[in-house]
Design a protein around this nucleic acid. Structure first.
Lengths: 113, 113
DNA sequence: TTTTCATATTCGCCTATGCGAATATTACGG
DNA sequence: CCGTAATATTCGCATAGGCGAATATGAAAA
């Protein structure tokens, strides 16, 4: 078994090559959110969101924080030039769902959850 | 069958989530190369390189130019902000093979092929 | 401790895709 | 028209990963 180990670069790129995960990362750009809100905005079953969040965690793109029953996710602090540039890509990625997602997130934040 | 259509953003990210394709894109950053040189530098079978080049073409990341028996590939001219940022990511991606690839490419170019 | 709520993981199925090997295609020389 | 060289595509197989459904985990409440 001589499978070449996957680099973190590849892992990060693969992580952002899925629509749902792109939407999650975009939602987190303005700060942390709890899983239940992410589920609401995405409109997907909770296990689906959880699986994608785990994927993003493995790629070191998000970090989770526990508080009682709730888990809050946020973007991992940028430590490399590559990571910074990758987030720049997100900022100008043309994903149809971003617009409505952003509105819903803004609305959630206004209700100060 | 209600499969959501994949956006070009996702396609581009998926295209760069493979080591071999990352190496190809990196090699092309300084200008076009013909397939046989790409094969040599990568050290993979010709059909493998060809398949990855086709993948990159579908994602609109590279363009091919035919000249007699040879095909020359180069990076697609940047037309979107996203595309530009994505290439910026490549420039600071930490991929082990880049260093030696760059040396081999530089050597090829010096021999003015 | 039993229940309940929020989240995470597992399972089964199906598609996407990587790879080696074989084959097809295309263009040129003879 | 053949043969050959350069490149592209196809096939068969194996693994990664997406999804729905079911289940597990973990913490707070009763």
């Amino acid at each position: 078994m001589k499978t070449k180990p996957t680099t973190l670069v590849e892992a990060k790129f693969r992580a952002v090559s899925d629509r749902t995960r792109l939407r999650i990362l975009n939602m987190l750009r303005d700060g942390e959110l709890c899983v239940c809100h992410i589920v609401d905005v995405l409109g997907v079953p909770q296990p689906t969101a959880s699986r994608h969040l785990a994927y993003l965690r493995r790629a070191r793109l998000v970090i989770a924080r526990k508080e009682g029953l709730w888990s809050y996710y946020r973007l991992t602090p940028v430590r490399s030039n590559f990571h910074a540039k990758l987030l720049d890509c997100l900022a100008c990625a043309d994903v149809p769902e971003f617009a409505t997602d952003n509105k819903q997130v803004a609305s959630l934040r206004r209700r100060c959850c």
